[in-house]
Design a protein around this nucleic acid. Sequence first.
RNA 1: GGCGGCGUAGCCAAGUGGACUAAGGCGGAGGUCUGCAAAACCUCUAUUCACCGGUUCGAAUCCGGUCGCCGCCUCCA
Length: 479
Amino acid sequence: MSKLVFYNSLTRQKEEFRSINPGEVRLYTCGPTVHDYAHIGNYRAYIFEDLLRRTLTFFGYQVKQVLNITDIDDKTIKKSREQGLSLKSYTDTFTKSFFDDLKTLRIEPAEVYPAATEHIPEMIDLIQKLIDKEHTYTADGSVYFKISTFPDYGKLSNIQPDQLISSARGDSDEYEKEDVRDFALWKAWTEDDGDVFWEAPFGKGRPGWHIECSAMATKYLGTHFDIHTGGVDNKFPHHENEIAQSICGYGGPFVDTWLHCAHLMVNGEKMAKSLGNFYTLREILDAGFSPRVIRYFLLSAHYRQQLNLMYDPETGSHDSFNAAASALERIDEFKAKLADMKQHSAAGDLISRKTIELLDHSRIAFKDALANDLDISGALGVVFGMIKEANKRIASGELSNMDAQAVYERLLRWDEVLGVLEPDQTDEIDAASIEALIAERNQARADKNFARSDEIRDQLLADGIIIQDTPQGTKWRKK
RNA sequence: GGCGGCGUAGCCAAGUGGACUAAGGCGGAGGUCUGCAAAACCUCUAUUCACCGGUUCGAAUCCGGUCGCCGCCUCCA
């Protein structure tokens, strides 16, 4: 059996994965701050963690995943107040849209979706532990974590703490920190916070950003768990701070494996509102691209590789989605062909030795690719390699109906990881009437009434049905 | 300035020193099938891995340098 290997950001090398408890993986994924509709780049990260969780499941692990919802921070407070809404009613909209989007992209649900505002007591508890252990100080009612009390600080991001002093930029003096490296655990209430505050032993206020992940991860996964994922941008400071809080507060060890996903680029540039290349998932769906195509595109490159989306609605350029759509069509065609063939296989038919060899070889290669730090490109290469070889055998008549069934089953098994296949046609399509039209068309063709036959073809196409004339008769499928 | 990543065909993208005479997808060119087909299928499409040195019996893969691109460096996945 292939051994799972991941590139651990903490050690900066590939390591064989061993779960803490045999057969079980506890996984924490940094979730969204629900202050707006999530953009396409956000979903690259969630497609990545989806591939991770599906792969872990594929390798036989029981996965317990926690994905947090950050429903309180500077932005959510500011925007909700601007709109005159309560924090909750403001964030609810985007929390809901986030879940809708996950479903749209076929991202498997996590086991727990904790919201920050529902875990304030846990955070207060952790902050109190840190205060008791003297890792903090208070200034103007805010509680700060004192980085100098944690010698390992900077290990994840490979940053020397003293480098930060000179390089820190921006409004680092916004708060009364003793040291720019320090970060807020608890922010004292100000007028701008309006009615958003909680009472804590150390004062009225709200939690800092980093504390929620430590508190919630620990609540649901324990103080020591297997994998923590997030975007590269979270490495520093967020994850660095999370490690510091957790280890100092609960005692180590904390997380064994840290996985970070690279960013999605748009036309070679970082996606940013200021560059005008910022797209929400909704916008792209509205532009007519299917969730499957978007999923395939986001999935198709290795997670540590920056993925470049070539897309510009102004000029009508959408090369990336075109390529993804064409690749999917190729898979769809192949699957439809197999589905048709397998219907004609009879019980007692045997799978040919050549097919068994092809399937065995492909099965191992696919698994090896995934085992190698989620090498999805390699895995897709295996899928298309099998398609190519099987197509060749179909064309030469070498592939029996029974063989086709075996290949079909292999494809479905793989799709448990990929999640890109079109579900089998449902009965909502009126198959009988389509068959009737096809019969009529074939009669027209036999009568050389091509005007009528083409008219039927166009009509079916308009209804989303594609038909193809093959040596085995006319086939149809949903577009 | 500090830390890190990347540069493989027109485009996207695998490649974990030796069967690489370098996967796979898109695009392109031929062909098969068809009444026709925009479909489908088949075949072809990098003597070469940014450049220069080095290590090695052997390097796209390791080391050094040069050039170019990108990311992170306090609340952005």
